[in-house]
């Protein structure tokens, strides 16, 4: 699993791990049902304490990105609502980004854009 931790980031290690695993799941690099490394193995690989990884896994589990089976380990959740919502959100964000970039290129102002979105939304 590809995780890079920054020592200088203001973000605590557990949050960096949480965010990076989350984005691996959202980008489908970690597939549904795929097993995650054990907490202790990942802690060893990353050179951080066990409890740091535990906290990241706990948060991921709380938000249903992963689930754990005692004695077996942690796995990426399949078809969970939070995950789908996250994925949609991500798609929306990407599309909006494209809309804004395109709008800027042709000189559509923010007000005009918002007006357009209002019209679409009410349809």
């Amino acid at each position: 699993m590809k995780i890079l931790l920054s020592n200088s980031s203001k973000d605590p290690f557990y949050n960096q791990i949480y965010e990076q695993i989350k984005s691996l799941i959202l980008s489908d690099e970690l597939k549904d049902g795929e097993g995650l490394p054990s907490m202790r193995k990942l802690a060893y690989d990353l050179g951080v304490s066990v409890i740091t990884v535990k906290r990241a896994y706990d948060e991921l589990e709380k938000e249903n990105f992963i689930y754990s089976i005692v004695g077996k380990g942690s796995f990426v959740s399949e078809n969970n609502i939070a995950l789908i919502k996250e994925k949609k959100m991500q798609a929306v964000e990407e599309q909006l980004q494209a809309v804004v970039t395109n709008s800027k290129e042709v000189g559509i102002s923010l007000d005009e854009l918002q007006e357009m979105i209002n019209l679409f939304y009410k349809e």
């Binding site: 605590p12 050179g47 304490s49 409890i51 906290r55």
Partner: peptide
């Protein structure tokens, strides 16, 4: 800071705190 899960801090014979490293960082 990297490998400890918990940190216990003692001063003049008193335990001042016993926190997980996450608590300390957060």
């Amino acid at each position: 800071e990297k490998i400890a899960d918990y940190i216990v801090f003692i001063k003049d014979g008193d335990i001042i705190f016993n926190h997980s490293i996450n608590t300390l960082q957060n």
